[in-house]
Design a protein around this nucleic acid. Sequence first.
DNA 1: GATGAATGAGCTTTCATTCAT
DNA 2: CATGAATGAAAGCTCATTCAT
Lengths: 206, 206, 206, 206
Amino acid sequence: MADTQENGSGSDSKSARTRRRILDSAAQVLSNKGYAGLRLSDVADLAEVQAPAIYYYFSSREDLIEEVMWSGVAELRKHLEEALDKLPDGTTPLDRFSVAIEEHLRHELDLSNYATASIRNAGQVPQAIRERQVAEENAYGAIWADILRAAQSAGEIRGDIDVHTALMLVFGAMNWTSEWWDPERGDIDDLVSTAKAFILNGLAGS
Amino acid sequence: MADTQENGSGSDSKSARTRRRILDSAAQVLSNKGYAGLRLSDVADLAEVQAPAIYYYFSSREDLIEEVMWSGVAELRKHLEEALDKLPDGTTPLDRFSVAIEEHLRHELDLSNYATASIRNAGQVPQAIRERQVAEENAYGAIWADILRAAQSAGEIRGDIDVHTALMLVFGAMNWTSEWWDPERGDIDDLVSTAKAFILNGLAGS
Amino acid sequence: MADTQENGSGSDSKSARTRRRILDSAAQVLSNKGYAGLRLSDVADLAEVQAPAIYYYFSSREDLIEEVMWSGVAELRKHLEEALDKLPDGTTPLDRFSVAIEEHLRHELDLSNYATASIRNAGQVPQAIRERQVAEENAYGAIWADILRAAQSAGEIRGDIDVHTALMLVFGAMNWTSEWWDPERGDIDDLVSTAKAFILNGLAGS
Amino acid sequence: MADTQENGSGSDSKSARTRRRILDSAAQVLSNKGYAGLRLSDVADLAEVQAPAIYYYFSSREDLIEEVMWSGVAELRKHLEEALDKLPDGTTPLDRFSVAIEEHLRHELDLSNYATASIRNAGQVPQAIRERQVAEENAYGAIWADILRAAQSAGEIRGDIDVHTALMLVFGAMNWTSEWWDPERGDIDDLVSTAKAFILNGLAGS
DNA sequence: GATGAATGAGCTTTCATTCAT
DNA sequence: CATGAATGAAAGCTCATTCAT
């Protein structure tokens, strides 16, 4: 599944499908080899096209990578927003938080090379590429921060904790999973419940 | 300090000092540009030598990088072992754990390009380089696992938690700090105490 | 006018007009960028067609360029022949020569990208393209040589001068104008009269 | 001789000789194939080095070409200045002019790929490269203009002629020779004397 | 010990050209 | 007639690496 996800929806003309294949391949290579290690020829091989065909769809290597990095976070956000929207009206902030943790982890580990590509390369990509991604990250972070603040107001988590620092520690614990978690050896349900317990206890505290 | 740390001690002949400068520079470049993004010419510039001079000290680019990656973790372990050895005999596992968190964070953020280089590039480095680093990581992880298990036996943290998963979540929260924490804007003491509270509560749980 | 000239006449079906537009555009690009610098995509943009459409009218890039280079001189010759034919029967060789100078200059500077394309790229085009152009050039040169020899016989210009060398010096003075003369800043009538005086005196001599 | 000229003088260390060989080769290729047609691999073949070696001496293709274009005119000027300096004090402007014609032609035809490269590609090179060359051209043109004005003051040539236009016609006649004159078939002394007669008569006039 | 000089492999990118539609 | 899609070949350029000095 991890290798065949579709990014976004939309038309599926032959042209659109080729573009998608290139983008998917780039996400996978980026995720494995890193920004500087991504070679267009590897992307092309995976996408089953010749390397110059990439230039029919993207104006440069940077352009292609930018779109992967940007849509990695965008997709994560869309995913989360949809999940939160489905919750019944009276759901408590802490329950919403719990859902967010689950969605983030499942999307990162189960579905998306885009997410892992974004996460792993955030620190290595040149400034020009970084900017649009940062905008998306801020939007994504804002959703989490809102939930966290609501939980604080509701007294569900400690009030003395700095929201930004807390969020970053939580993201750290979650994002790092893609570095060590092996889908072949672990059960994702176990991971999700352990992570939830760790994080919620960490923030609820005594 | 972060840019001028010395890795290990030992002889300080001119030759040894040049070697150290090259290694330090490689750690810094590796930390910023990633494995594939490291260019020997950048390392040479930082170390103030000519690029071919690197070959006098290291037999190849891979060799140089391997040493950085490997000593990043080795250094972290030495650091931790020394700190733990200094603790009085009766120190509880949980207190030892608390000290470990503090040492890991301070070393990563304050002292060492080696540590961040190791952490950031663990997933992108080729297998050949990875192996020795993995051995070091296992040794380092074993120290943490011992403490954790002792704490579990002592009933200081929950017994239902899987030690390996817990450890990885903790490492995630800590390692990710190097991606977002800005020494210019935050106080490291605050970060350390927030991280300790988050992690210890997360594992103690209700 | 210089950018919209039509080369030759003939059928004006939509197809023929598109072909003409492509040829005109090629002449202009060739004139500005040179043989190796001509890109079909530039020609296509100027002609307002898609690049592959060019292949409907010309079997290759070389083919297209050959036609421009060849018709550049052909057109110059047709132009000159018409002008000479209009002269009254008794016109002296020297007067015919004077008319030739004027026609050549006006056509080159005022009317035709084809002429400048031919002139500027004569030395850089591959042999295969060159041949047909050389044939045209010889025919064109023959007209000039005839006039010059007649003038020599009539004693209107020096007899000791080598006709071929003289002709080449004259062509040089004229052809070079397209490299330096700026229609925005100079008056073409002034240029024509100065050039006539220079050339005719140069050949008449003392 | 044309293929083996040395450009400028100076040290002849091995390194300097390689640099010179690359520059000489570039001048020759530029002269034959034009700006867009110059391939570094052709230059490298002629210079008997591998293509990337060029980058040891020049930072880019443009850089290399700029130096050829610029030094083509610079060399021409140096050549001319030296010849004029050798003339006895009382030499008339017209005699100086005559010497200038001779030096220009001989240098262009006999000695220098640099000169022909500069002349042929002046119109096709991008603006960035052009600028430095234009400066040199102006300096070179100023020498000629000075002589011409002096001759006008001395009444040696017509007073009604525009100096700039005249100069351009003269340069045209001379520069064009490299397009048609074949050293195998013609005698350069004949060409020089014919050209002198043509130009001087052209400007002296009746 | 260290460097100037050079190379070979491999990268991104461009471009003429083809072909199914 | 014309175009969207794609390719093969080759270009400029970068970089790790070598080697004589």
